[in-house]
Design a protein around this nucleic acid. Structure first.
Lengths: 333, 333
DNA sequence: TTGTATGCGTTATCAC
DNA sequence: GTGATAACGCATACAA
């Protein structure tokens, strides 16, 4: 019993102070019926005065409900992810649930992270980078009826998930560029997680009647540095008239690329149009402002929260959802 | 007893399966001595096979240690804050502690957020925007010996805290600009939390022998938009030769400002030097790359974690720390 | 080296 | 409308 210097009041202290039984205090604290209004009032005041707060551990032990939602985040922790966590967390607070966040060191660790977090919480949100289609751990959660939801998994998976249809946005972007008279749009992606982007890009070309060839796909490192480092190769392509527009993996990449272009005298959008992905908060403020593919159709955090809450409170089955993406047109394309 | 579809094994199930008492299983699970190696091995295997994990609630209830660290984040949740949370969270994971994150809606709510989170955890990290010097809630935590640490509070406070000496960096920035021959450096800040920036700026002017006047302080809204919106006024000042350098509240503000400058043909750094704050990840990748004031002297997350862990494990008294800031010179100044 | 018994603070069953 | 009592799963003082 490692004491925590606690002077915290218990339900019995409150009961005694009010001359009632613990059961009655419990009723009041949980807003249950069958307590005289006057008494309820008095107990509430006393509890307040004594600084009494029900012990979450005891409550969880007895009731089986921990009132905690777990969030597993993978190494790839972007601003977008954090914003979603913040949003979910606030919704949970209003629901009087706490939020436990744990970061998986890498995608291999994701499963063990889920497993270790599970006993702490009533439900989980997993920002997944799972490489496989099935997962023993997730299968076992499913069997036990433990509610969880994957967010933006890299592959189609047989679990409740919020998916993001990036292909659509990339297709739209390609079509838009061609519609604007571009002849040689190319795609600049990170090595990982780019399958849907490429697919959408190809479809866009196809529907616009431009033949796809492998040399339209460039790949690079992450974010700003990825953009900057890819610049020399792309500038070469632009000067050789082999490219007149670049659709990027994300907006950070655009920023890195665009500024490298500026240094070399490549004008955006005249010499090369640029399109990003994410609708990052800086995109309206650059010069030129960045045209970007954004996730549309509402905040996934709301959907995720509702699914998990409804499952926990009413046993509603978890539903999946696919969010579409679309183009936000600014100046860079 | 709202069941959570649990088929989870208890310590007794494991004990029974091994033909031993729960006491022995408990010893094994907690790595205590006095168990025959062979038996320990067998219990470990059985526990593993049965998927047994000690129930955190029961464990916490009995031992008084929840193995949870709480993190309170205020409305101002920047990337920097998130990176620190991630860092602390990972350290806690290695320490086999979970991390509970709760967002205060605003600084008025900060105290009640702290209060409501307290019963959940053994220690707390508070990214504080506290407006007052003393806080009844923090006083009561202190009295109870509950370990907590404030991160970057806006004012000096009588609690354990990691402070960031922004004044120093702003002073250094002002001196640097003047050393580079600038005659009219000005400061562009957000309305809130700018006292130390102004103080440092003034000191820098003073030590460089340039008289301070109130029209050297401009104030604006937050981040990118704040920078962009302040541009017209600053451009006027620059054209009237009333300004030839701007030190900003943060790097985002520089980005918004700089791009507005570019649109109006103001050259950076020729017409106006620009200095930001935060060493935001994009600063090396803009054109020109942004000179910025950065927090130096190690990651505060490490220090915070150590303080709290040492207090919880050994009762070590919490220490405070002040981190210095300094200039990172790139191209914009 | 191992086991027995007790209680942490709460909620739920059942009686009054 | 209210109260005695048991039980949740675990850790520990104490006994063997």
């Amino acid at each position: 019993m490692a004491k925590t210097g606690k002077s915290t009041a218990t339900i019995h202290n409150v009961a005694e102070a009010c001359g009632v039984s613990a059961r009655t205090v419990s009723r009041v604290m949980n807003g249950q019926a069958h307590v005289r209004p006057a008494l309820r009032e008095r107990i509430l005041e006393t509890a307040q005065a004594m600084g009494y707060r029900p012990d979450p551990s005891a409550r969880a032990l007895k009731s089986g409900r921990k009132r905690i939602i777990g969030i597993v985040v993978n190494a790839v922790s972007s601003d977008t992810t954090f914003k979603r966590i913040e949003h979910i967390s606030k919704l949970c607070s209003a629901w009087e649930h706490a939020v436990l966040v744990r970061f998986a060191e890498n995608s291999e660790m994701e499963e063990s992270t889920v497993e270790s977090l599970m006993p702490w919480c009533d439900g989980m949100v997993i920002f997944s980078n799972l490489r496989t289609v099935r997962s023993p751990v997730l299968d076992s959660l499913t069997e036990n009826g433990f509610p969880f939801m994957l967010v933006d998994p890299p592959h189609p998976v047989p679990y409740p998930a919020v998916r993001i249809d990036r292909a659509r946005g990339y297709r739209e972007a390609a079509e838009y560029l061609i519609g604007k008279g571009r002849k040689k749009p190319v795609l600049l992606v990170e090595h990982f997680r780019s399958g849907d982007r490429i697919r959408g890009f190809k479809k866009g070309l196809q529907s616009a009647g431009i033949p796809f060839s492998d040399d339209m796909i460039f790949s690079t490192g992450k974010e700003y540095a990825g953009g900057r480092n890819a610049a020399p190769e792309l500038i070469r392509a632009i000067r050789k008239k082999k490219a007149d527009a670049v659709i990027c993996h994300n907006d950070k990449m655009v920023l890195g690329l665009m500024n490298a272009f500026i240094r070399e005298g490549i004008h955006v959008p005249k010499d090369a149009a640029l399109i990003g992905y994410d609708d990052d908060s800086f995109t309206p403020y650059t010069s030129p402002a960045i045209t970007t593919i954004a996730q549309l159709g509402g905040n996934p955090a709301d959907f995720i929260f509702e699914q998990i809450r409804d499952n926990i409170e009413n046993g509603t089955a978890m539903k999946s959802k696919t969010l579409r993406t679309g183009l936000i047109i600014r100046e860079s394309a």
